[in-house]
Deep mutational scan, measured.
Amino acid sequence: DLSALRVEEVQNVINAMQKILECPICLELIKEPVSTKCDHIFCKFCMLKLLNQKKGPSQCPLCKNDITKRSLQESTRFSQLVEELLKIICAFQLDTGLEYANSYNFAKKENNSPEHLKDEVSIIQSMGYRNRAKRLLQSEPENPSLQETSLSVQLSNLGTVRTLRTKQRIQPQRTSVYIELGSDSSEDTVNKATYCSVGDQELLQITPQGTRDEISLDSAKKAACEFSETDVTNTEHHQPSNNDLNTTEKRAAERHPEKYQGSSVSNLHVEPCGTNTHASSLQHENSSLLLTKDRMNVEKAEF
């Protein structure tokens, strides 16, 4: 173990290094160091905050020279020094078990990766560091076993998940096959086929009936047209017969005018059967003409 005197000496050296690497504005270890034209180094955030307070150039807090945003430059070497100082402080805390008085939040800088452990060898070769390295080497064999167990647990979990997924996939297939086998029997399929065939026959029977009705309507229309044509021909046949009657009536009127007047009046009210309204109107006109002729003949006879 380190003596108290040596611990104090190391602590004083760390404090001196820390004062050199402090920012003059925030009085902390410089984060993202930036250098000016006057070779003074500050935190990048502190300098941008200072420049944004005034429009135009501002003055350096140490030498009062003008500073602009374009004049600022990043210093990589200074950032490396800060990183190495942080590593020294971490090693000091691990070796002594004491917390550094002016320690900052170094938890963000710590890294437990194997590459980081290899890099620590180049920091300080001390008894405390050696003991700590031995402890780490002793704890390393235990870690692979834990990793193997965790991997086995994960693989077993994956296997159970896969088996569950396969079961879920197989179950719908089985149910679907069961439904297909038990849903419709052979008799049901035959009945469905016969039902479809009967429906098709009914459709075939319905369509000819409609065509037959249309044919019957067409035949009825044709018969009505033929009947009207026969009526017209009958009226045409009746007209010459009426003319013959008129000639006979004229002759009778010349011989017996008194008797014919009474008979002509009675004939006005008689309509021949089986004739249309057109034929009756023609008869009325003929009878009126005959009456006028008879009157003329009677007057001539009187004179």
Rank of each mutant, 00 (worst) to 15 (best):
D1A: 08
L2V: 15
S3P: 14
S3A: 10
S3F: 03
A4R: 09
L5V: 08
L5G: 09
L5A: 10
R6I: 06
V7S: 11
V7I: 07
V7F: 07
E8M: 12
E8V: 06
E8N: 06
E8D: 13
E8Q: 08
E9Q: 05
E9A: 11
E9M: 12
Q11A: 12
V13L: 05
V13F: 03
I14A: 12
N15A: 11
N15L: 08
M17Q: 14
Q18P: 13
K19T: 02
K19A: 09
I20F: 07
I20P: 07
I20D: 12
L21Y: 02
L21W: 03
L21P: 15
E22D: 06
E22Q: 03
E22C: 06
E22G: 07
C23E: 15
P24E: 02
I25E: 02
I25Q: 13
I25M: 03
I25C: 04
L27V: 10
E28I: 07
E28N: 10
L29H: 14
L29T: 09
K31Y: 13
K31P: 08
P33K: 08
P33T: 12
S35G: 10
T36V: 04
T36A: 00
T36W: 02
K37D: 01
C38T: 15
C38N: 15
C38I: 15
C38H: 14
H40R: 11
H40E: 04
I41S: 02
I41N: 03
I41T: 01
C43G: 08
F45D: 10
M47G: 10
L48I: 05
L48S: 09
K49L: 03
K49V: 03
L50T: 05
L50Y: 10
L50M: 07
L50W: 15
L51P: 08
L51T: 08
N52R: 13
Q53A: 08
Q53W: 07
Q53R: 08
K54A: 12
K54F: 04
K55N: 10
K55Q: 11
K55H: 05
G56E: 12
P57F: 03
S58K: 12
S58W: 14
S58I: 11
Q59K: 09
C60G: 15
C60W: 14
C60M: 15
L62V: 09
L62H: 05
L62N: 12
L62Y: 05
C63G: 14
C63W: 12
K64P: 15
K64A: 00
K64M: 01
K64R: 07
K64S: 04
N65S: 09
D66R: 10
D66Y: 03
I67G: 04
I67N: 11
I67T: 12
T68Y: 06
T68W: 01
K69G: 13
K69F: 00
R70D: 08
L72Q: 07
Q73S: 12
Q73V: 06
S75L: 13
T76P: 07
T76V: 10
R77P: 14
R77S: 13
Q80N: 15
Q80H: 02
Q80R: 06
Q80P: 04
L81Y: 05
V82N: 05
V82W: 14
E83K: 13
E84P: 06
L85E: 14
L85P: 13
L86C: 10
L86S: 06
L86A: 06
L86R: 12
K87P: 00
C90T: 04
C90A: 04
C90D: 02
A91E: 12
F92S: 13
Q93H: 13
L94Y: 07
D95A: 15
D95C: 15
G97V: 00
G97D: 10
L98P: 06
E99K: 07
Y100H: 04
Y100P: 04
N102L: 08
Y104A: 01
F106V: 08
K109G: 04
S113C: 07
L117R: 12
D119N: 05
D119E: 11
E120G: 11
V121D: 14
V121L: 13
V121N: 04
S122A: 15
I123V: 09
I123K: 03
Q125Y: 06
Q125E: 03
S126R: 08
S126H: 01
M127C: 12
M127P: 01
G128A: 09
R130E: 07
R132P: 03
R132T: 15
K134Q: 10
R135F: 02
R135C: 13
L136W: 02
L137W: 02
L137E: 04
L137F: 03
Q138W: 02
Q138F: 03
S139L: 07
S139H: 11
E140C: 06
P141R: 07
E142F: 04
N143Q: 05
N143G: 10
N143Y: 03
P144A: 06
P144T: 08
S145H: 00
S145F: 01
S145Q: 01
L146C: 04
L146S: 10
Q147I: 02
Q147R: 06
Q147D: 03
E148T: 02
E148W: 11
T149F: 12
S150Y: 04
S150H: 01
L151G: 12
S152R: 09
S152E: 02
V153P: 13
V153D: 08
V153Y: 10
Q154K: 02
Q154R: 02
L155I: 00
L155S: 13
S156R: 07
S156T: 06
L158A: 09
L158Y: 08
G159K: 13
G159N: 12
G159A: 09
T160N: 10
R162V: 08
T163C: 02
L164P: 11
L164G: 11
R165M: 08
Q168C: 12
Q171P: 13
P172H: 10
R174I: 00
G182E: 10
S183T: 00
S185Y: 03
D188N: 09
D188F: 14
D188G: 03
T189S: 05
V190I: 09
V190Q: 01
K192F: 14
A193T: 12
G199K: 05
G199Q: 04
G199M: 07
D200H: 04
D200N: 11
Q201C: 00
E202K: 11
E202R: 07
E202A: 11
L204P: 13
Q205Y: 13
Q205T: 02
Q205C: 00
Q205V: 03
Q205P: 03
I206F: 01
T207I: 01
Q209H: 14
G210M: 15
G210D: 03
G210A: 02
T211P: 15
T211A: 06
D213F: 03
I215C: 14
I215T: 14
S216I: 06
L217R: 09
D218F: 00
D218M: 03
S219D: 06
A220Q: 05
A220G: 05
A220H: 14
K221Y: 00
K222S: 04
A224K: 07
E226H: 15
E226S: 12
E226K: 12
F227S: 11
F227P: 12
S228T: 15
E229C: 01
T230Q: 14
T230S: 10
D231I: 05
D231E: 03
T233Y: 00
T233I: 09
T233H: 04
N234I: 01
N234A: 04
N234F: 02
H237I: 01
H238N: 11
Q239L: 10
Q239K: 05
S241I: 03
N243D: 11
N243C: 14
N243L: 14
N243R: 08
N243A: 09
N243V: 08
N246Y: 00
T248F: 03
E249P: 07
E249A: 11
K250D: 03
R251L: 10
E254D: 03
P257H: 03
P257I: 05
P257R: 04
P257S: 02
E258M: 00
E258Q: 10
K259V: 08
Y260A: 13
Q261S: 05
Q261H: 02
Q261C: 13
G262H: 11
G262K: 11
G262F: 01
V265T: 10
S266V: 07
S266W: 00
S266N: 05
S266K: 09
S266A: 06
S266Q: 13
N267T: 03
L268G: 09
P272S: 08
P272L: 00
G274F: 12
T275A: 01
T275F: 13
T277E: 04
T277A: 05
H278E: 11
S280D: 03
L282T: 10
H284Q: 13
H284P: 10
S287L: 00
S288V: 14
L289N: 03
K293T: 04
K293R: 01
D294M: 13
R295C: 04
M296P: 13
V298M: 15
E299H: 00
A301L: 01
A301G: 02
F303S: 13
